[in-house]
Every structure is written in C-alpha cells, then in structure tokens.
C-alpha cells in the first residue's frame, strides 16, 4: 500500500514537471526572450568573426599554419551558422522585436560574407585585406551586443 502511494506521488510529480516544461517550451516568446536570443546570436557571431579576423592576421604574418587557420575558419563557420539558425528559427513577437531583427539580420549576412572572403583568400595580401574587411563587421556585432545586452 505504502509503496503504491509513493509510486502515485512520483508519477504525478513527473507528469507535473513534464507539463510545466511543455508549457515553457511552447509558450510564445515575449520581447525579453527575443532580445536574449538575438544578443546570444550576436555574441556568438561576434566571437566567430573576431577570432577569424585574429586568425587571418596571424596567418598573413606567418604566425599560424594553414592547417590551423583552416580548422579555425571551419570552427568560426560552424559557430556562425548555429547562431544564424537560432536567429532565423524564431519570429519576432512585436514591433520592438522586429526592429531588433532588422538590425541584426544584415550584420549576420555581412559576417557570413566576411568569413567567405577569409576562407577564399590564398596569399598574405588577400588575408590581410580580408581580415581588415572583417573588422567593421566585428565592430558592428560588438556594438549590437553592447547596446542590447
């Protein structure tokens, strides 16, 4: 009898927890959630572009190997795609959120283009130029994070 009571309590607790988690994960996002998500995406895109820029400069200066730089660019690409996917996966709940979206979307596109250019470059001059071109993109992303965090 006692073990049955315990089992009933345990089952109802699990059911409650499940329902609670279900509610949390399906409830429509408000502006605060949306802002948190965009800042996180911008932060991670900034990390990717910023690191790729450092790596590009170091590559041009002969401080890192090609193999290392390629692996580093691939990591940056992966982080950026994850950030962009997270950003694209959620629609803005209101007008303020739409403004945020319109501000970040072009920055993420520029970030992808900057990475493309770094990956396509084949000689020191091109690396330096691509790294220099990535700088304003990184600055823009950082400014976005600092403005909205």
């Amino acid at each position: 009898m006692r073990s049955r009571t315990w089992a009933a309590i345990a089952v109802s607790l699990v059911a409650l927890l499940w329902a609670g988690l279900g509610h949390l994960s399906t409830r429509p996002a408000d502006f605060h959630d949306y802002r948190t998500m965009t800042v996180r995406a911008a932060q991670s895109a900034y990390g990717a572009v910023g690191t790729a820029r450092l790596t590009g400069d170091a590559l041009a200066a002969g401080k890192v190997t090609r193999a290392y730089a390629e692996a580093g660019f691939a990591d940056a690409r992966e982080a950026l795609s994850a950030a962009a996917a997270g950003f694209a996966g959620e629609g803005p709940p209101d007008d303020r959120a739409r403004k945020l979206r319109d501000q970040l979307a072009p920055l993420l596109r520029d970030a992808a283009a900057a990475l493309d250019r770094l990956e396509a470059a084949r000689d020191p001059a091109a690396w330096t130029a691509a790294a220099a071109a990535a700088q304003p993109v990184a600055d823009g992303l950082r400014a976005f994070v600092e403005e909205h965090a």
Binding site: G47, T51, A58, A61, K63, V64, T65, Y68, G72, R142
Partner: peptide, 23 residues
C-alpha cells in the same frame, strides 16, 4: 570581449606570441 568555446581559440595566443613554433 570574445568568448572562447573552441580548442583552436585556446591555443591561438601561443601563435600570436611566438609564431608557428609557439603554436
């Protein structure tokens, strides 16, 4: 203000300081 979440990032400073040998 860059967060580190890859192993590549954690060894990059050795390259910045001492070049390919350091890396």
């Amino acid at each position: 203000g860059i967060r580190v979440d890859t192993l590549g990032q954690s060894v990059l400073p050795a390259g910045l300081a001492f070049g390919q040998w350091g890396l």
